[in-house]
């Protein structure tokens, strides 16, 4: 399949990438841009591990064509904080033991980021509902929910 050049804005940087029409955003951020923090656990939109933010909204990058991500601000886990700094959600995940194997963590954090962006003080049920599309097999979600709740 023919590749075409595409301009993507990822983590605030404009990047030019050559993509095939059927390349997903997940493939492009991981393989073309080396942003391996975005994880593929199912590839068919069922687990949320590949969640990135597009214009601040969580999307499943495995179901999003790279071509559909042009002219949109894409944020991956690498773009959530700069350098050694951490986003308060990331700090909270560490402090509250919300990370075990870590494979669902980037998607989970980005989903929580969007929730906290629109609601500073979500209650427990709202948090559980918001992250219910992000599967985790290690934690039973308890410490993840605590971590999100603790972010001020």
């Amino acid at each position: 399949m023919e590749k075409e050049l595409l301009e993507l804005t990822v983590n605030g940087e404009v990047q030019e990438v050559a993509v095939k029409p059927n390349d997903t955003l997940l493939e492009v951020v991981r393989d073309n841009l080396g942003l391996i923090g975005t994880k593929e656990a199912c590839g068919v939109g069922e687990c949320g591990a590949c969640t990135v933010l597009m214009e601040g909204r969580p999307v499943l990058s495995c179901l999003t064509l790279a071509l559909d991500a042009t002219e949109q601000e894409v944020t991956t886990i690498e773009g959530l904080s700069t350098g050694e700094d951490l986003d308060p959600i990331q700090e909270s995940f560490i402090q509250y033991g919300a990370v075990q194997c870590g494979f669902c963590t980037p998607g989970m954090i980005l989903t929580a980021k969007e929730l906290l962006g629109r609601d500073k003080n979500p209650d427990e049920a709202e948090i559980r509902e918001a992250i219910s599309g992000n599967l985790c097999r290690c934690t039973g979600y308890a410490k993840i929910v605590e971590a999100v709740q603790a972010v001020k």
Binding site: L35, I36, G37, T38, K39, E40, T76, I77, E78, S81, L86, Q90, F93, I94, Q95, G97, V99, Q100, G102, F103, T105, P106, I109
Partner: peptide
């Protein structure tokens, strides 16, 4: 003590390398 994991920082930053990341 309730200590944070030593690898949690890399994991929340998306920097931890799993096999497919190599």
């Amino acid at each position: 003590k309730r200590l944070p994991r030593i690898d949690a920082r890399d994991k929340v930053k998306g920097r931890a390398l799993y096999t497919d990341d190599i």
